[in-house]
Design a binder for these strands. Sequence first.
DNA 1: TCCAAATTAGGAATGATTATTGATTGGGCG
DNA 2: CGCCCAATCAATAATCATTCCTAATTTGGA
Lengths: 144, 144
Amino acid sequence: MTNTALEQDIREKLRRSGYTLTSQRRAVLDALKETQGHPSAEDVYLIVKKKNPRVALGTVYQALSVLEEIGVVESKHWSESPTRYDLNTEPHLDIRCVNCGRVSEVPGVGLGDLEALVQENTAYKVTSTRLVLEGICPVCQGEG
Amino acid sequence: MTNTALEQDIREKLRRSGYTLTSQRRAVLDALKETQGHPSAEDVYLIVKKKNPRVALGTVYQALSVLEEIGVVESKHWSESPTRYDLNTEPHLDIRCVNCGRVSEVPGVGLGDLEALVQENTAYKVTSTRLVLEGICPVCQGEG
DNA sequence: TCCAAATTAGGAATGATTATTGATTGGGCG
DNA sequence: CGCCCAATCAATAATCATTCCTAATTTGGA
């Protein structure tokens, strides 16, 4: 498995920023891989806790923050929902159901050159471009 | 001035949803007009309080929520920042400085048919599309 | 005017996140 | 191999934004 290669890559990124790959940070990464979704910090905490009951929620927050800083994890903020975390840092679109909270990826649509376009039209130095979508998921539509 | 006409329009929208235009709600609208920016609920509260010291912060939150529901106000969520409110409900792009918190509008860039494109590529019923931009504003760049 | 329903003020409660602090750990160096 | 120092962690207190609750007030309509 590519587990070790990925881990080496992450370890290298951490090192470059003066961090180390601790067992807690690895556990957070594993939890993110495991869910394949967009868990909240609390969700990650619960998964990590299953294997190591001694971890603290604060540690999960701190690990997620470090992992985001080195570009391995991305966070998104929806309304009426805690921050959600994602291993996929490629530009992509996520949509959240305002009814049940489910988060799904929207395939086949890219932000295109929107980021470049934005950069041309503002004096800001753009550091982050995130499209936040909300809607009603198929399941909840069926219930209507 | 068109004040009365605008007010009539809003009064009508409220009425259609079973609400009334109370002095507190009008005060919140005035505060939003006054700032022309993207104030937080707290900012709005402080402005409203100047004219009517008896208003409660909770009332401001409730008023903003009602005004958003009827489509007169839009809220946006950036990281590390309370929700910010805007009278401009036309599709537009706002960028927030991660250093000083300033929020500015990005002119000349639209979301185009992105919303339609998203709708085509997901089984969700899209209810909200918001592009959240973050960067470093010109002033803060100068300080670097 | 009077009533019922909507709204408000004030403050307590909640939920997410950050800060603090003392203990623990792990990797480099003797 | 074992010590040392800085990084990290666990536990919990504190903070911040927001919502909830309740009694009092206001409002529009009969």
